[in-house]
Amino acid sequence: MSKLGIKNIGILVTGDVKAPISKATTIIVEDGKILKIGEEKLLEEFKCDKVIDAKGSTVAPGFIDSHVHPVLGDFTPRQNTLGFINGSMHGGVTTMISAGECHTPGRPKDATGTKALAVLAHKSSKNARPGGVKLHGGALILEKGLVEKDFEELAKEGVWLVGEIGLGSVKDPEEAAPMVKWARKNGFKVMMHTGGTSIPGSSTITAQDVINTDPDVVSHINGGPTAIAPEEVNKIIENTKMALELVQCGNYKIMKHTVNAVKEKDQLERIIVGNDSPSGSGIIPLGVLRTLSYVASETNASAAEAICFATGNTAKAYGLNVGFIEEGKEADFVIMDAPMGSIGKNSLEALEAGDVPGVSMVIIDGEVMFTKSKNTPPATHGAVIC
């Protein structure tokens, strides 16, 4: 069984927002899963096939982009984009969650067609990892005519996501709420578009609409790009326990308000991070990192907490075995440091200064995907394979 060791870790971010920093300096990986976490003497106990020297830089769980709109593989016709998933990996993203394949040309809007699209996208993403990233595709777009049996049939085919409600013909809580119950009964996780319209075909959804529909995830609570008012955000925070998604392609003022309001209530575990790309706002390969930089530098959350928003919080919201540096979890990591020239002495200080860290390595299932990001600034200290 193959083993990988990572040593000389300067800062280890756990993914647990309640305890975001570990004193451990060494990680042992076996067959794609985290085997042990501790001190460098572990390398004497476990003979590794490959050892990575982190050179005192930060090791964090690979980022999870909770909101993407793919079509098939690494292609979407939105902005005529090919390779956006690979580009995001160079920004530290190792897992992506589809919020619906809404940009599919000629997207079917009948019950049979929307089911077929979800099955196709789910199985395609399961069979092939675009750019190496774990894409969870095939998020069912709710259309009129769907019945409870449809959710049962989809679950048997492995489909487990409902794309953000509001993208399809089902928009009102009276129609959506029964479908949400059918979906949840069959093991689905449900997202809901929130706020103003973002592109033609989407619709404005209020806080009360969200409460009445009862999804698992409040998609882009900071709008896409038109956000709901601060009092509407407060209403969702105070009256639900839903995961609250921040997106890069949204309203920054509401992003700041949301983080600070949740921090005040000691509920930071509710916040997750997505890009909402490809979108009308364009393609932003560093979208997750840029969101973390904004949150760390402009809100009351620390950089370590912000990283947990895009890792462990999202993993918990969707029931994934990633997002934490814990024994038994899938070995997905981003190794990063302050970018050259930053006033920050490490990646966390750089984020809190408003900088984007330099990513020197991304690892997925214990496999090194690259040894220098093509999209971030160069790291002051880059990890190397010994």
Results as ranks from 00 to 15, higher is better:
125 S>M: 07
90 H>C: 09
359 V>Q: 04
14 T>A: 04
323 G>I: 10
19 A>P: 11
121 A>D: 15
351 L>G: 09
193 H>S: 03
354 G>C: 10
115 K>W: 00
318 Y>W: 08
79 Q>W: 03
255 M>S: 14
344 G>Q: 06
222 N>M: 04
89 M>Q: 07
244 L>Q: 11
123 K>P: 00
48 C>D: 01
294 Y>F: 14
11 I>P: 01
23 K>I: 01
348 L>E: 07
160 W>H: 10
116 A>H: 12
348 L>G: 07
18 K>W: 00
232 E>Q: 12
179 M>V: 14
290 R>I: 11
221 I>V: 12
53 D>L: 00
72 L>W: 00
107 R>N: 02
385 I>H: 02
303 A>C: 13
288 V>A: 11
358 G>L: 04
26 T>R: 04
296 A>Q: 14
306 A>P: 13
53 D>A: 10
103 H>P: 02
143 E>M: 05
90 H>A: 06
137 G>T: 03
103 H>K: 02
57 S>L: 04
336 M>G: 08
114 T>W: 06
16 D>W: 11
198 S>G: 00
315 A>T: 10
375 N>T: 03
227 A>L: 08
62 G>T: 09
367 E>L: 12
350 A>M: 08
359 V>L: 07
101 E>W: 06
316 K>L: 12
248 Q>L: 12
283 I>R: 05
54 A>V: 07
347 S>I: 04
119 V>M: 12
63 F>R: 07
380 T>A: 13
57 S>P: 09
82 L>V: 11
176 A>E: 13
174 E>F: 01
253 K>H: 12
149 K>H: 15
281 S>W: 02
285 P>W: 13
172 D>L: 13
246 L>T: 10
73 G>Y: 03
363 I>E: 14
252 Y>S: 01
224 G>K: 13
30 E>H: 08
362 V>F: 08
105 P>Y: 08
34 I>A: 12
355 D>Q: 03
126 K>H: 12
14 T>I: 03
158 G>F: 00
237 I>V: 10
9 I>C: 04
171 K>Q: 15
358 G>D: 03
72 L>P: 05
352 E>M: 15
221 I>Y: 02
125 S>I: 08
13 V>P: 03
46 F>W: 03
15 G>A: 07
130 P>N: 02
279 S>V: 01
267 Q>F: 11
264 E>K: 15
174 E>Y: 02
140 L>R: 11
242 M>I: 05
152 E>F: 06
80 N>A: 14
115 K>F: 00
140 L>N: 07
291 T>D: 14
143 E>N: 09
120 L>A: 04
255 M>W: 08
104 T>M: 05
82 L>G: 13
374 K>F: 13
42 L>N: 03
86 N>S: 06
87 G>W: 08
375 N>D: 01
264 E>H: 13
287 G>M: 01
224 G>F: 15
49 D>A: 02
64 I>V: 08
